[in-house]
Design a protein around this nucleic acid. Sequence first.
DNA 1: GACAAGCTTGACAGTGACTGACAGGTTCGG
DNA 2: CCGAACCTGTCAGTCACTGTCAAGCTTGTC
Lengths: 197, 197
Amino acid sequence: MSENLRERTRRAVQREIGDAALTLFAERGYDATTIDDIAAAVGMSQRSVFRYFATKEEIVVGKLELAVDDMLDVLRRRPPGEPVWTSLRRVFDVVDHYGDQQELSALIHRMVFDTPALSAAYLHRLQLMQEAVVAVLVERAAKAGNPYPADDPTPRALTASAFGCLVAAQHSWLASSTQGTFANALDRAMATLIPRA
Amino acid sequence: MSENLRERTRRAVQREIGDAALTLFAERGYDATTIDDIAAAVGMSQRSVFRYFATKEEIVVGKLELAVDDMLDVLRRRPPGEPVWTSLRRVFDVVDHYGDQQELSALIHRMVFDTPALSAAYLHRLQLMQEAVVAVLVERAAKAGNPYPADDPTPRALTASAFGCLVAAQHSWLASSTQGTFANALDRAMATLIPRA
DNA sequence: GACAAGCTTGACAGTGACTGACAGGTTCGG
DNA sequence: CCGAACCTGTCAGTCACTGTCAAGCTTGTC
């Protein structure tokens, strides 16, 4: 139980820092808020904040909780024969679990998209996820009996396009003042392309 | 003529810094090279280096010379009725003008892709380009007489997917030890998807 | 209940990217 | 040839981030 407790308190502290930081960011802006400000807000030293978050950007980007593990789990559970494009769309359902806290999610996304440093960090994170997704796709095709040829760009291209659509949908959704569901925006974005059979 | 000269010397100095920096980066690695090192190599003060490059990342990413202006020019010159996907493929011909210096280009890309800070900066830059491209596409559709509906995600989604394919192609090309032309890699990547009519 | 091991924390010092301000020197246009 | 515009080095400062160390608290063990 002890280990579990340590982990729980760790998460609790992390959450507390994250929440306090987000409040400050929303008030003064991301760039205008220093780590010292955040540390002061939660009554810790600057050093300790960095023990919970590797970088300042991660405090925000981590909030998006694009849990890589969840996405990969979903992908692995999809029927091996399913079209890749469909599987990818299902993977993004994980992202869509913002459902209950649309407003917060929109706030964060807006902040990410108009803070260059955050935007860069977010895109980089998506890129890392893509690599993991591609690996699973390759593995799954092999298991299904029709592996991709050695240097076939197909899995990479499809994945990159799907993630591109994800970002496009996020932009569209924000631009339309978050009217309609995000899931709908994503469906529309991904419907503009058809993978070649 | 004077203005022209100023600009030319400016570009010359910028190029000199960039070349010296790239040499150092290649020797010691990006992170292990400080701006002071670069400044010393070209016999300038650190401050002056920052007068030619806004950030350390830009020294490298700027080398990729993904000249936004060139891309937009190409796009604007395409026949208005041409399928968007085709136009985007043509836009990327600008990127392919690495032709004569494949080796250098590959070196830089490799460095970008395995240095997190550079990767993030590069992806962010691509994102900015996309916004400009989307604007041109919207404008062009309007001029051609069939404008996109107000919140149609199509142009954004297609552009994002095309850029996704671009990055995927770059990865594939590097992974295959730069066998074959980059143009070919891009063609293959973009052929995996068909825009819905 | 004492004790050793392990985790967490604050304090301090240091690096490196980046910025603002100022002063001296060079170039340019008239 | 003179003032304006430009470029440069120097200095000082901010801020993200890292290593180190000693002190305190937690936990598992006897």
